[in-house]
Amino acid sequence: MSRFHNVAAGGLVASLLVAVGAGIGLAAPKPQAGHAAQPPAVVKKIGIGREATAEEIAGWNISVRPDGQGLPPGKGTVKEGEPLYVERCAACHGEFGESAGRWPILSGGAGTLASHDPVKSIGSYWPYASTVIDYIRRAMPFGAAQTLTNDELYAITAYVLYLNDVIKDENFELSDRNFATIKLPNQPNFIDDDRETTEKAFWRKDPCMKNCAAGEPKIIGRARTIDVTPEAGKGPKVE
């Protein structure tokens, strides 16, 4: 992320300002080698698309950020959330967030991330509580998205955070006013993409062409022995 921040803070914004300030709505896009020429550069704004009304935007703008931007007004307690969760969520996620079958697990797994069998739950893995309320708001319950009231949303979120021991008091009332105070424990363990430094060795001038490893190669693993491949000839029916 920092890379982008740095770039954005420097040359990028400056060039944008020039472009926008000069009334250049469209600069020529970068050509793709091997493809035909680019479209004509347009010198000023084209003026296609009408102004979106505040009401239109409000109806679709459901995104919530870690700093609390986008939180809808509302409130709900852990206690209020429990029956809602049991009714609307538990069939897939399990009564305690432990997951039923292959549906996503919501709780548990503390201390497992560095093990051979990591459990990536909200409490053990997710960096931000805002992600929980944002995701429930936009996509849950599965198959009945965007049907919860704001108060139901806060109550269910409070209960899910309670299942993860992030909220410990069942009388706690979660709201847009206190939401930003909720922190998840694993947040410091996320690092920005560092492949270009930690994997620098993968940029090689002259990859080995002859006698690149000693001895005969040995087969150490076979997909066949695991036997989980769908059978040949079987598959979805096509008309």
Partner: peptide, 18 residues
Amino acid sequence: TSKYTDLLENGKARRFTF
């Protein structure tokens, strides 16, 4: 965050690995 982040052996996870 929950998905499309790359958990490393030490328990840290890479994010924005676009």
